[in-house]
């Protein structure tokens, strides 16, 4: 049941049928928000779309209105959006406002910017790039941008690459830290992992994880085993040398059936925690006068 709920929820959100005034998309250099944004566009083909560009060079063809925000103050952007919103307003349908990046707005101005942007007729979908270095706030104790944005957002989409088996997580992190992008590791792929956090009016917060396939426009509940390769994936062993390093199924079966030594012993005596217990028997000899004799 919850599977169904999850897919339904995400579909409603992405097509703007579910009320969510501010949708935050957290992306990274490993997986950009691009495909998710495209999904919104795909499902909102009947809604007017206002595109706020801080870093987009080419005006997208789907944009009803395009606001060039580079160099503008936040309040100027808000004014421009409201102006455009009025002119493109489509009656009952919500207007989708896409913001390519919130990273260009100073931390202390972020909440003000977002809250003044929000209007009942709009759904604001904005991306924030998480790899950007974070300036420590000039005001003591003031939270950083990710904390702030995730707090005020009604829905949060965290986008991650599906790299699980293709590259070691630590290695990937080390490379990204140096701005190196490994190839054939599933980065910036049409298939990605998306974690949705949706705040309900009741106060409850629902969290679902999906595998998102942009080319098929599908959200599928994320299964951990889905892209884990079996523990005995021997494809890596196939062409290494001229020796046959693989096992065929008969051999594998035989291997499974081998009884490992000491398995029984582990069950019986192992329960004693491996303690060696000495039992004095009739043939043993105990010397009472020897001060170094083992005690029982």
């Amino acid at each position: 049941m919850s599977v169904q709920n999850a897919t339904v929820l995400v579909s409603r959100l992405v097509s703007l049928k579910e009320a969510s005034p501010f949708v935050l998309v957290l992306d990274s250099l490993q997986q950009s928000s691009y495909y998710l944004f495209q999904e919104f566009v795909h499902r909102c083909s009947n809604n007017p779309i206002i595109y706020l560009s801080y870093e987009t060079t080419n005006r997208p063809s789907y944009a009803t209105a395009f606001v060039d925000c580079a160099g503008l103050l936040p309040r100027e952007v808000v004014a421009a959006v409201h102006k455009e919103a009025k002119s493109v307003a489509g009656g009952q349908t919500k207007t989708l406002v896409l913001i390519d990046s919130l990273n260009y707005i100073a931390n202390e101005e972020l909440t003000q910017f977002v809250s003044s942007l929000i209007q009942p007729s709009l759904t604001v979908v904005a991306s924030y790039h998480t790899n950007s270095p974070q300036l420590a706030s000039t005001i003591a104790n003031y939270p950083g941008p990710v904390s702030l944005l995730t707090y005020i957002a009604s829905s949060i989409f965290e986008v991650e690459p599906l790299t699980h088996q293709r590259i070691d997580d630590e290695l990937l992190e080390a490379k990204i830290e140096r701005l190196e992008f490994p190839i054939r590791a599933g980065l910036n792929d049409t298939r990605s992992k998306v974690t949705l956090t949706n705040r309900r009016k009741s106060g409850r917060s629902l969290i679902y994880t999906f595998t998102f396939d942009a080319s098929k426009h599908e959200f599928e509940p994320f299964k951990v085993t889905e892209d884990t390769i079996g523990p005995e994936d021997e494809s890596l062993l196939k062409d290494l040398t001229t020796f046959n390093l693989t096992t065929n199924s008969k051999q594998r079966l035989a291997r499974e059936q081998v009884e490992l030594p000491f398995m029984e012993a582990q069950e019986a005596l192992g329960s004693a925690g491996g303690a060696i217990v000495y039992e004095f028997e009739k043939d043993d000899d105990y010397d009472e006068e020897d001060p170094y004799e083992d005690p029982f």
């Binding site: 250099l29 950009s32 870093e55 990046s101 990273n103 260009y104 790039h129 790899n131 950007s132 270095p133 974070q134 300036l135 420590a136 701005l179």
Partner: peptide, 19 residues
């Protein structure tokens, strides 16, 4: 994390450029 550090601006620039 501080603008005193010249590496901050250039790192910020590069991350955003890559995006």
């Amino acid at each position: 994390n501080t603008t005193q550090d010249p590496a901050f601006e250039v790192s910020d620039f590069l991350v955003k450029l890559y995006h």
